[in-house]
Amino acid sequence: MTVTLITGANKGIGFETAKQLLELGHVVYIGARDVERGEKAAAALGARFVQLDVTDDASVSNALATIGSAEGGLDVLVHNAGILGDGVIDGPTALHVFNTNAVGIVRVTEAALPLLRKSSNPTVVTVSSSAGSFWAVNNPERPEFNLPLALYSASKSAATMLTVQYAKSQPGIKFNAVEPGTTATDMTAAFGIGRSPEESARIVVRLATLDADGPTGTLQDEDGELHW
Results as ranks from 00 to 15, higher is better:
residue 9 A to G: 02
residue 13 I to E: 01
residue 14 G to E: 00
residue 17 T to P: 05
residue 20 Q to S: 05
residue 21 L to P: 01
residue 23 E to N: 15
residue 24 L to R: 15
residue 25 G to T: 05
residue 29 Y to H: 06
residue 36 E to M: 14
residue 39 E to C: 03
residue 45 L to C: 05
residue 47 A to P: 01
residue 49 F to P: 13
residue 49 F to L: 10
residue 56 D to W: 03
residue 58 A to M: 04
residue 59 S to H: 13
residue 61 S to Q: 12
residue 65 A to P: 09
residue 67 I to S: 13
residue 71 E to I: 14
residue 83 I to F: 01
residue 84 L to V: 06
residue 84 L to M: 08
residue 86 D to H: 11
residue 87 G to P: 11
residue 88 V to A: 14
residue 88 V to K: 15
residue 90 D to K: 13
residue 92 P to R: 11
residue 104 G to C: 07
residue 105 I to L: 15
residue 106 V to K: 14
residue 113 L to N: 04
residue 115 L to C: 10
residue 119 S to W: 05
residue 122 P to L: 01
residue 124 V to K: 04
residue 125 V to T: 11
residue 126 T to A: 13
residue 127 V to Q: 06
residue 128 S to H: 01
residue 129 S to P: 05
residue 129 S to A: 09
residue 130 S to M: 12
residue 137 V to L: 10
residue 143 P to C: 13
residue 146 N to I: 15
residue 155 S to A: 15
residue 156 K to M: 00
residue 157 S to C: 10
residue 159 A to Y: 02
residue 159 A to C: 09
residue 163 T to S: 11
residue 165 Q to N: 15
residue 168 K to F: 12
residue 175 F to H: 07
residue 181 G to W: 08
residue 185 T to S: 07
residue 186 D to P: 00
residue 193 I to M: 13
residue 194 G to F: 09
residue 194 G to Q: 09
residue 198 E to T: 04
residue 199 E to G: 12
residue 201 A to P: 04
residue 211 D to I: 01
residue 212 A to Y: 08
residue 221 D to P: 10
residue 224 G to T: 15
residue 225 E to F: 11
residue 225 E to Q: 14
residue 225 E to G: 11
residue 228 W to T: 12
